[in-house]
Amino acid sequence: MGGWVHGQGIPRAKMKIGGSFDTREGRDVDRMRHACDIVGPDAALFVDANGAYTAKQAVRFMWKVRELDISWLEEPVSSDNLARLCLEVWRHQRWLRITTLAAACNLEISGDCAPHMSVHAAAATPNFRHLEWFHDHVRIENMFFEGCLNPQCGMLRPSTKPGNRLAIRTGALEKYRVA
């Protein structure tokens, strides 16, 4: 996290919480405090509970960490609980319908997974909030594609040319061939 925020200038970082399904809240509180110390006061910390809580547990947990000023809580409840689910979806074929629906409800959209593949659609979305920058996704995209973007001052600047400008590194994929 510190490398992204301080090294690449990304003004926000996200971490997973709720992995113990509410049995180790104290551990998550400690991890969140530690993450805030690492990223510092000038960066935002986002958390993703992956549906680990009931609605009441999520409210209670976030009240416990209110002094940390968490600016984004993703999927606090199960995706089966659509009435209370934080809207965060990434599917290209449904992006326009989902973002339009979210805008009609005054909700912002977060782009999740494959940032280099997602950046163009996200940049064209008026109610777009942020594009998630997962280490594993970025690492894999850089391994397998030429033309990946490099954050400058915490931002990606997509090309104005058509397409995503990515080219597959076929040689890098060869060692992963199964059949």
Rank of each mutant, 00 (worst) to 15 (best):
M1T: 14
G3D: 09
G3R: 09
W4M: 13
V5K: 04
V5A: 07
H6W: 11
G7F: 09
G9I: 00
G9W: 08
P11L: 04
K14M: 10
K16S: 07
K16T: 07
G18N: 00
G18A: 05
G19M: 03
S20M: 08
S20D: 12
F21R: 11
T23S: 15
R24G: 06
R27Q: 12
D28E: 10
D28N: 01
V29M: 05
R31M: 10
M32A: 05
M32D: 00
M32S: 03
R33Y: 01
H34N: 02
C36N: 12
V39D: 02
V39Q: 02
D42N: 13
D42H: 10
L45Y: 03
F46N: 08
A49K: 04
A49N: 04
A52C: 11
A52F: 10
K56Y: 06
Q57M: 11
Q57E: 13
V59A: 14
F61P: 00
M62N: 15
K64V: 04
V65K: 01
V65T: 06
E67D: 15
E67N: 12
L68A: 04
L68N: 01
D69S: 15
I70E: 03
W72E: 05
L73N: 08
E75A: 14
V77C: 12
V77T: 14
S78L: 09
L82M: 11
A83M: 10
L85M: 09
H92L: 12
Q93C: 00
R94W: 09
W95I: 02
L96H: 13
L96C: 02
L96G: 07
R97L: 11
R97N: 14
T99W: 01
T100R: 15
L101D: 13
A102G: 08
A104P: 01
L107K: 10
L107V: 00
I109P: 03
I109F: 05
G111A: 13
G111P: 03
D112Y: 03
A114K: 05
P115Q: 08
H116A: 04
M117F: 05
M117H: 12
M117C: 04
M117P: 00
M117R: 07
M117E: 09
S118I: 10
V119H: 01
H120K: 12
A123C: 09
A123Y: 06
T125A: 04
P126Y: 02
N127A: 08
F128E: 03
R129Q: 09
L131R: 02
E132N: 14
W133G: 01
W133R: 05
D136E: 15
D136I: 13
D136S: 14
H137I: 00
H137V: 06
V138N: 12
M143H: 14
F144K: 01
F145D: 03
F145S: 06
G147Q: 10
C148G: 10
C148H: 06
L149R: 07
N150Q: 14
C153H: 14
G154F: 02
M155H: 13
L156C: 08
L156K: 09
R157S: 13
R157K: 14
P158I: 05
P158G: 08
T160E: 12
G163D: 07
G163S: 10
G163V: 11
N164M: 11
R165P: 01
L166M: 08
L166C: 05
A167D: 10
A167M: 11
I168F: 06
I168Q: 08
I168P: 06
I168Y: 03
T170F: 13
V178H: 11
V178I: 13
A179N: 11
A179S: 10
A179C: 04
A179H: 09
